[in-house]
Design a protein around this nucleic acid. Structure first.
Length: 432
RNA sequence: GGAGGGGUGGCAGAGUGGACGAAUGCAGCGGUCUUGAAAACCGCCGUGGGGCAACCCACCGUGGGUUCGAAUCCCACCCCCUCCGCCA
């Protein structure tokens, strides 16, 4: 399940092209088609045998109730027919189970095709949809790793000692700034955007990890607690979207919108070098995530709305940013359409991704069996899920530090955060 | 961690080997009645899979087992509740 066997049968070409566009092997589609056909043939055969066995069992019951000796020859004959069918059924069920396991695995490896208007290609094909604010010139501006160290906001060395490289320690005003950002984000999402606040578990089980598509596709990116068979969450998307796994939601209750803070754990295997300076790429970071469950016809509008909710936060923080429509090979396995919000960091001299807003259409919903009734009494149908960061903390913090740095080495606190910092308008300068 | 109780349709809740895919109630849908609504009454009403269809198959927490036949008996695991222990 993921793209659904119905679509596999009806429109395999879109699935093949979708896989190829995302840089995946399209032959998985044909493997799935083959398994589906074999499965159907076997199911038909096994079901016929089961019907036969059910009928004989029923006859045995009737015979005994009708006065036949349960241990007599008449009943023994009936039993042997049923037993013989049972043996063949067992053999077929074993084969069927193997084929179904293979089919499920193949289906899980077929990516969600991108929407038709998504540009095909890699990074070079991304489209800048819009920009906001003036990217500050880089001259004289210092990178956040210098400033944060000098102001005592972030202690990377001790984080490395205590846990490892990529586990930053936030200190003093640095820690307070984290709290301020989280609180302000959540307050905005609840009071202004009407979302329900969620504080989710930081670990999930395998069913949940599979539901949102972390496994089998991105298993290497997650920290696994093997002793208890749990996964540290790479984003609140995983526990929050799984909140409604295996549920049928009444249409009147849609849309459901959540805002959730969680720590995020990512192994970032293979990542190293220039992009990892300071807190640009770390193993543990904090993020507020927005998650929506909507009627299928509403998901396109919801994607735009969520993107705007994230943009508004950046605007109020006074950070210049751009919105990118991500190309097929940049968007990952499960998304149908994705916008990235990149904020300008004048000290690090680059654009930093601080939010990723995605429409999964029915792909995650199918994996998780999240359905809704379009109207009372109607058949349950899959709904659409979406999510977007609002926002990820470390890079937002880096951009704040670099954008709002003052000539004296202090940092001006953006206006919306001041109430959360006891009215403070500046952090630093050192010795002040 | 230990002892006991329990997990059944959207919800509540019966069902201890064959007539049970499952009583009953509530909710929902359609209808009668009514100016309209309510009440009352009648009918329908789980999910998934296979098949053009008739129809068939599977599912009573999960996975095994016993049996001709399992919601029902046996085993393991998971989850919930109560009590005890431990503990931020």
């Amino acid at each position: 399940m993921s793209v659904g066997v119905q679509r596999l049968r009806d429109d395999p070409e879109t699935l093949r092209r979708g896989a190829a566009d995302k840089g995946e092997d399209p032959s998985i589609v044909d493997r799935a088609i083959d398994l589906d056909e074999r499965r159907r043939a076997l199911v038909a055969e096994a079901d016929a045998l089961k019907a036969e066995r059910n009928a004989s069992s029923k006859r045995i019951g009737e015979a005994i109730r009708g006065g036949a000796d349960p241990n007599g020859p008449e009943v023994a004959d009936l039993k042997s027919a049923s037993t013989a069918a049972g043996e063949r059924i067992d053999a077929m069920d074993t084969e069927l189970a193997a084929i179904e396991a293979d089919l499920e695995d193949a289906m899980l490896r077929i990516p969600n095709p991108a929407d038709p208007d998504v540009p095909v290609g890699g990074e070079e094909a991304n489209v800048t949809v819009r920009t906001w604010g003036e990217p500050l010139p880089v001259d004289g501006r210092r990178p956040h790793w210098d400033l944060a160290d000098e102001l005592g906001l972030i202690d990377l060395a001790r984080g490395a000692k205590v846990a490892g490289s990529g586990f930053p320690v936030y200190v003093g005003a640095g820690s307070a700034l984290q709290r301020a950002l989280i609180s302000w984000f959540l307050d905005t999402h609840t009071a202004e955007n009407g979302m329900t606040e969620i504080w989710p578990p930081a670990v999930v089980n395998a069913d949940s990890a599979r539901g949102t598509g972390q496994i089998p596709d991105k298993e290497d990116q997650m920290y696994v607690v093997t002793r208890d068979d749990l996964y540290l969450v790479p984003t609140a998307e995983v526990p929050v979207t799984n909140l409604h796994r295996d549920e049928i939601i009444e249409a009147d209750d849609l849309p459901i919108r959540y805002a959730a803070y969680s720590p995020c754990f990512r192994r970032e295997a293979g990542a190293a070098g220039r992009d990892t300076r300071g807190i640009l790429r770390v193993h543990q970071f904090d993020k507020v995530e927005m998650v929506s469950f909507v009627r299928p016809e509403d998901s396109e509008a919801e994607l735009e709305w969520l993107t705007e909710r994230a943009e508004l936060l950046l605007q109020r923080l006074g950070l210049a940013y751009r919105v990118l429509l991500m190309a097929t090979r940049e968007m990952g396995f499960v998304q149908a359409r994705k916008y990235d919000l990149e904020v300008w960091a004048p000290g690090a001299e680059r654009w930093l991704e601080v939010s990723s807003v995605s429409n999964f259409r029915d792909y995650q919903a199918r994996r998780m069996a999240i359905r809704h009734r379009a109207e009372a009494g109607a058949k349950p149908e899959l709904l659409h899920t979406l999510n977007g960061s609002g926002l990820a903390l470390p890079r937002t913090m880096a951009a704040i530090i670099e954008t709002h740095q003052q000539p004296d080495g202090s940092i001006a606190v953006p206006e919306p955060l001041r109430p959360y910092l006891g009215g403070r308008e500046h952090i630093g300068p050192p010795g002040a």
